[in-house]
């Protein structure tokens, strides 16, 4: 296996996904297959190849430092399921 069960559990946790035991088993097999397939790329010699930073060969796309009006707050909060005092409301975060 290219990936262990605990690695799958770890990745799921980082992505805040919850799976049943059967699903974890199934994904471990499937993800291993995918990784094995992609691993084929490791057979290539990339010694003198620059790592790709971006697939489009352009650089330095900038904007000037100019302020433009922000969006109306009512619009900003329109789709928020919970809001209070002009803020987005989320489950209590304890520091």
């Amino acid at each position: 296996m290219a990936i262990s069960r605990s690695e799958v559990e770890h990745v799921a946790k980082l992505a805040r996904l919850k799976f049943s035991q059967e699903e974890i088993e199934e994904f471990t097999v499937q993800l291993s297959k995918i990784i094995d397939y992609v691993n084929k790329l490791n057979e290539l010699d990339t010694e003198n190849v620059e790592p790709t930073a971006h697939i489009v060969p352009i650089h330095n796309v900038f904007r000037e430092d100019e302020v433009k009006p922000s969006m109306d707050r009512d619009k900003i909060l329109m789709n928020a399921p919970y809001k209070e005092n002009g803020c987005f409301k989320v489950p209590k975060i304890i520091e």
């Binding site: 904007r63 430092d65 100019e66 302020v67 433009k68 922000s70 969006m71 707050r73 900003i76 909060l77 005092n85 002009g86 803020c87 987005f88």
Partner: peptide
């Protein structure tokens, strides 16, 4: 004057969520 990836102001303070 403006944010790193958009044209909203960087001014400190302001009513919540009015610089977004």
């Amino acid at each position: 004057e403006s944010k790193i990836f958009c044209s909203c102001t960087t001014k400190f303070g302001g009513e919540p969520n009015t610089h977004v």
